[in-house]
Design a protein around this nucleic acid. Sequence first.
DNA 1: AATATTATTTAGACAAATCTAAATCATAAA
DNA 2: TTTATGATTTAGATTTGTCTAAATAATATT
Lengths: 219, 219
Amino acid sequence: MNLSIAEENYIKSIYKLQEGDTVVTTNALAYELETKPASVTDMAKKLKDKKLIDYEKYKGFTLSAEGKKIALQIVRRHRLWECFLVDKLHFSWEEVHELAEELEHVRSEKLTNRLSEYLGNPLFDPHGDPIPDANGKLTKPRPQTSLDQATAKRVVVTAVTDQSTALLAFLNAKHIKLSTQLEIVEHYEYDNSIEIKIKQQPSITISEQVAKNIMVRPV
Amino acid sequence: MNLSIAEENYIKSIYKLQEGDTVVTTNALAYELETKPASVTDMAKKLKDKKLIDYEKYKGFTLSAEGKKIALQIVRRHRLWECFLVDKLHFSWEEVHELAEELEHVRSEKLTNRLSEYLGNPLFDPHGDPIPDANGKLTKPRPQTSLDQATAKRVVVTAVTDQSTALLAFLNAKHIKLSTQLEIVEHYEYDNSIEIKIKQQPSITISEQVAKNIMVRPV
DNA sequence: AATATTATTTAGACAAATCTAAATCATAAA
DNA sequence: TTTATGATTTAGATTTGTCTAAATAATATT
């Protein structure tokens, strides 16, 4: 199956919107891909011909088994490149998505597998999302919650959902990074702010708004 | 300047064929790009409009200053990725060209420079070709000759010109790799075969045909 | 149930990159 | 210098991915 970059992007976006087995609508996909519904309909026909999606007029689409397989390969490549960019080239979280978006289209299984090996076969990308293995199998995502919902006392940062420069600058200033261990000292009901402590540092208080965008898991 | 992948490939090939300041002909470029002369003429018009080449009907083309700059950026990315694939992912010489051909089209200066830094700012790629620096400056190529022409006694392997599986298998069996140091023990005039010695190993004799395809420089 | 609204598809067009076949130019040979 | 040959360009067509505007289907409202 030889797919164009455009076709790959459609497959990837359908996979993203599916989340389980929801039917994906024309409009939703057009919005996701920043294109027009008419273009989506055109592409849907092509992908149906290639048996990568199930599609009936006016009924939306879902990936076929083959389509899912290809989607997982693309996701695998994307997330591995993100790991590479962060771990090896020291990019920060928010910079890597765009670049990985391009690198993911280099379709070489050998390259992908070597890259994975080189990175130590990581199971999660820098945003905390699981990386499919060579067979397309996904580790179940870590049991992460946002920091404001956390019940454990000691947690480790797994992801940041808001990629705004403002938040990232804030986190940078406070030395909160991926894998940083936090101790939840106090939860103030009044404004839902949270007092946390990073080992060897004085404790700090962060607002609910910030806490909502920091994903953590129990350590 | 936002170039398509096709345009980048044309620029790169013109650069390759130019070698100094020779005028590149339509046919030569068509052959190099495995396309038809008519397509080359079409693209020549576009590149002329973008001021990347100098072109007059029936007179062939050369890169403009701007075109040369872009060509060097592409070459830089290509050769850095080749280094990455060989040094870090342990691909062998002959496998990397195709992959680098795809990776080179990710146009991010930041990525390119980080990659270069990560690799230790290499000056030569795995084939012995010089890598332009961030400003497009080229180190002058190493003074390499084919092994059968070598005058020095101790040399180091810098490249292999023939990429056939047969030759590569042979070299592999004899443990001759890039950067391998060789001592030239004897040169037999009868059949132009050469006796060489790799340190710690018994000396071996190789045919003229093999020697012609191994590039070396004095150590 | 009839009508209004929204979602989706169709029809027709366009730009990029390519092709084939025919025409034109440049140059080497007679 | 005329002719023949090969290189190059033009003309017109094709494919891919996109678009706008109009038509049609599905759904919600009255």
